[in-house]
Amino acid sequence: MSSPRYPAGTGSVAAIAGHPMHPMVVPLPIGALVLALAADIAYFVTENPFWAEGAKWLLLAVLVTGALAAILGIIDLVSLARARRMIIALAHGGGNAVMLAITLANYLTRPEQAAGEPMIGGFILTVLAVALSMVTGWLGGELSFRHGIGVSPGIGDGAGSEPARTPRS
Protein backbone atom coordinates (compact mmCIF):
# COMPACT_ATOMS: atom_id res chain seq x y z
CA MET A 1 0.00 0.00 0.00
CA SER A 2 1.13 3.50 -0.72
CA SER A 3 1.65 6.14 1.92
CA PRO A 4 -1.10 8.64 2.52
CA ARG A 5 -0.80 11.58 0.15
CA TYR A 6 -2.74 14.79 0.57
CA PRO A 7 -1.68 18.41 0.87
CA ALA A 8 -3.77 19.03 3.99
CA GLY A 9 -6.68 17.51 5.84
CA THR A 10 -10.15 18.77 4.97
CA GLY A 11 -11.43 19.14 8.49
CA SER A 12 -15.07 18.43 9.19
CA VAL A 13 -18.13 20.65 9.38
CA ALA A 14 -19.89 18.21 11.72
CA ALA A 15 -17.36 18.45 14.54
CA ILE A 16 -17.14 19.11 18.26
CA ALA A 17 -14.08 21.16 19.27
CA GLY A 18 -12.43 20.20 15.99
CA HIS A 19 -13.11 16.47 16.36
CA PRO A 20 -15.20 15.07 13.49
CA MET A 21 -18.40 13.47 14.73
CA HIS A 22 -18.92 10.94 11.91
CA PRO A 23 -15.99 8.72 12.95
CA MET A 24 -17.08 9.05 16.60
CA VAL A 25 -20.53 7.63 15.82
CA VAL A 26 -19.64 5.00 13.19
CA PRO A 27 -18.50 2.33 15.69
CA LEU A 28 -22.00 2.23 17.20
CA PRO A 29 -23.88 0.73 14.22
CA ILE A 30 -20.91 -1.48 13.36
CA GLY A 31 -20.75 -2.87 16.88
CA ALA A 32 -24.51 -3.40 17.05
CA LEU A 33 -24.45 -5.19 13.69
CA VAL A 34 -21.67 -7.56 14.73
CA LEU A 35 -23.48 -8.23 18.02
CA ALA A 36 -26.70 -8.94 16.08
CA LEU A 37 -24.78 -11.56 14.10
CA ALA A 38 -23.45 -13.05 17.35
CA ALA A 39 -27.00 -13.11 18.75
CA ASP A 40 -28.26 -14.86 15.60
CA ILE A 41 -25.55 -17.49 15.98
CA ALA A 42 -26.35 -17.89 19.69
CA TYR A 43 -30.02 -18.39 18.78
CA PHE A 44 -29.15 -21.13 16.29
CA VAL A 45 -26.98 -22.88 18.86
CA THR A 46 -29.29 -22.58 21.87
CA GLU A 47 -32.78 -22.09 20.35
CA ASN A 48 -33.34 -19.68 23.23
CA PRO A 49 -35.74 -16.93 22.09
CA PHE A 50 -33.78 -14.42 24.21
CA TRP A 51 -31.14 -14.33 21.46
CA ALA A 52 -33.68 -13.82 18.67
CA GLU A 53 -35.23 -10.93 20.60
CA GLY A 54 -31.78 -9.52 21.35
CA ALA A 55 -30.82 -9.68 17.67
CA LYS A 56 -33.97 -7.77 16.71
CA TRP A 57 -33.24 -5.01 19.27
CA LEU A 58 -29.65 -4.83 18.04
CA LEU A 59 -30.89 -4.40 14.46
CA LEU A 60 -33.00 -1.48 15.68
CA ALA A 61 -29.87 -0.01 17.29
CA VAL A 62 -28.07 -0.38 13.93
CA LEU A 63 -30.86 1.54 12.21
CA VAL A 64 -30.96 4.40 14.75
CA THR A 65 -27.19 4.87 15.13
CA GLY A 66 -26.61 4.18 11.42
CA ALA A 67 -29.07 6.95 10.53
CA LEU A 68 -27.17 9.34 12.81
CA ALA A 69 -23.83 8.32 11.26
CA ALA A 70 -25.36 8.77 7.79
CA ILE A 71 -26.59 12.27 8.58
CA LEU A 72 -23.14 13.28 9.84
CA GLY A 73 -21.48 11.69 6.81
CA ILE A 74 -23.83 13.47 4.42
CA ILE A 75 -23.07 16.80 6.12
CA ASP A 76 -19.36 16.23 5.50
CA LEU A 77 -19.94 14.97 1.96
CA VAL A 78 -21.95 17.99 0.85
CA SER A 79 -19.71 20.50 2.64
CA LEU A 80 -16.27 19.17 1.62
CA ALA A 81 -15.44 19.74 -2.04
CA ARG A 82 -12.62 17.17 -2.03
CA ALA A 83 -15.00 14.48 -0.74
CA ARG A 84 -17.65 15.30 -3.35
CA ARG A 85 -15.09 14.73 -6.13
CA MET A 86 -14.15 11.25 -4.90
CA ILE A 87 -15.85 8.14 -6.25
CA ILE A 88 -14.94 6.20 -3.10
CA ALA A 89 -16.83 8.74 -0.98
CA LEU A 90 -19.95 8.03 -3.02
CA ALA A 91 -19.31 4.28 -2.85
CA HIS A 92 -18.82 4.53 0.92
CA GLY A 93 -22.07 6.42 1.42
CA GLY A 94 -24.04 4.41 -1.12
CA GLY A 95 -22.81 1.11 0.28
CA ASN A 96 -23.80 2.17 3.77
CA ALA A 97 -27.25 3.17 2.51
CA VAL A 98 -27.64 -0.32 1.02
CA MET A 99 -26.43 -1.85 4.31
CA LEU A 100 -29.08 0.15 6.21
CA ALA A 101 -31.76 -0.93 3.70
CA ILE A 102 -30.77 -4.59 4.18
CA THR A 103 -30.89 -4.09 7.95
CA LEU A 104 -34.32 -2.45 7.74
CA ALA A 105 -35.66 -5.35 5.67
CA ASN A 106 -34.09 -7.76 8.16
CA TYR A 107 -35.68 -5.96 11.11
CA LEU A 108 -39.12 -5.71 9.54
CA THR A 109 -39.27 -9.34 8.43
CA ARG A 110 -38.30 -10.86 11.77
CA PRO A 111 -41.36 -12.24 13.51
CA GLU A 112 -41.82 -12.52 17.23
CA GLN A 113 -40.07 -15.84 17.49
CA ALA A 114 -40.85 -18.95 19.46
CA ALA A 115 -38.08 -21.26 20.55
CA GLY A 116 -36.88 -23.41 17.69
CA GLU A 117 -38.46 -21.28 14.96
CA PRO A 118 -36.06 -21.06 12.00
CA MET A 119 -34.83 -17.63 10.95
CA ILE A 120 -32.31 -18.44 8.26
CA GLY A 121 -33.44 -15.52 6.06
CA GLY A 122 -32.70 -13.00 8.79
CA PHE A 123 -29.36 -14.63 9.47
CA ILE A 124 -28.39 -14.38 5.79
CA LEU A 125 -29.39 -10.70 5.73
CA THR A 126 -27.30 -10.05 8.85
CA VAL A 127 -24.29 -11.76 7.27
CA LEU A 128 -24.75 -9.69 4.09
CA ALA A 129 -24.99 -6.46 6.10
CA VAL A 130 -21.85 -7.32 8.10
CA ALA A 131 -19.93 -8.17 4.92
CA LEU A 132 -21.03 -4.94 3.26
CA SER A 133 -20.11 -2.90 6.34
CA MET A 134 -16.60 -4.39 6.18
CA VAL A 135 -16.22 -3.08 2.62
CA THR A 136 -17.72 0.33 3.37
CA GLY A 137 -15.66 0.62 6.54
CA TRP A 138 -12.52 0.00 4.52
CA LEU A 139 -13.60 2.70 2.07
CA GLY A 140 -14.19 5.10 4.96
CA GLY A 141 -10.70 4.36 6.23
CA GLU A 142 -9.31 5.09 2.78
CA LEU A 143 -11.10 8.43 2.76
CA SER A 144 -9.58 9.44 6.09
CA PHE A 145 -6.17 7.81 6.11
CA ARG A 146 -5.24 8.04 2.44
CA HIS A 147 -7.09 11.17 1.33
CA GLY A 148 -7.34 13.31 4.46
CA ILE A 149 -11.14 13.56 4.44
CA GLY A 150 -12.22 14.69 7.89
CA VAL A 151 -8.61 14.99 9.04
CA SER A 152 -7.55 18.20 10.80
CA PRO A 153 -6.62 20.88 8.23
CA GLY A 154 -3.16 21.32 9.79
CA ILE A 155 -2.18 17.75 8.93
CA GLY A 156 -0.27 17.32 5.67
CA ASP A 157 2.72 19.15 4.32
CA GLY A 158 1.16 21.08 1.48
CA ALA A 159 3.20 19.18 -1.11
CA GLY A 160 1.17 16.01 -1.41
CA SER A 161 3.66 13.84 0.44
CA GLU A 162 3.14 11.91 3.65
CA PRO A 163 1.33 13.97 6.29
CA ALA A 164 3.46 15.70 8.89
CA ARG A 165 3.65 13.94 12.25
CA THR A 166 2.83 15.70 15.46
CA PRO A 167 5.27 14.81 18.26
CA ARG A 168 3.73 13.21 21.32
CA SER A 169 4.09 15.03 24.61
Rank of each mutant, 00 (worst) to 15 (best):
A8D: 10
T10S: 14
T10R: 01
G11W: 04
A15P: 05
A15K: 05
A17C: 08
A17G: 03
M21V: 11
M21Q: 11
P23S: 00
M24F: 01
M24H: 01
P27A: 11
I30V: 12
I30E: 07
L33G: 02
L33Q: 06
L33T: 05
L35T: 12
L35M: 14
A36E: 01
I41F: 08
Y43M: 06
F44W: 10
V45R: 05
V45F: 02
T46V: 02
E47V: 09
N48E: 10
P49V: 13
F50L: 05
G54R: 15
A55E: 12
L58N: 03
L58V: 03
L59P: 02
L59Q: 09
A61K: 06
V62F: 04
V62E: 07
V62L: 07
G66R: 08
G66H: 07
A70T: 15
A70N: 08
G73F: 08
I74K: 10
I74S: 13
I74C: 11
D76I: 01
L80N: 15
A83D: 11
R85Q: 15
M86A: 06
A89D: 09
A91G: 06
N96D: 02
N96M: 02
N96L: 00
A97R: 06
A97E: 03
L100S: 10
L100W: 05
L100R: 11
A101C: 02
L104Q: 05
T109Y: 10
R110D: 03
A114G: 10
A114M: 13
E117M: 15
P118K: 14
M119G: 02
I120G: 07
F123I: 10
V127C: 06
V127Y: 06
V130N: 00
A131R: 00
S133W: 01
T136N: 04
G137H: 05
G137D: 05
W138H: 14
L139D: 11
G140P: 04
E142F: 04
S144F: 04
S144L: 03
S144P: 00
I149V: 12
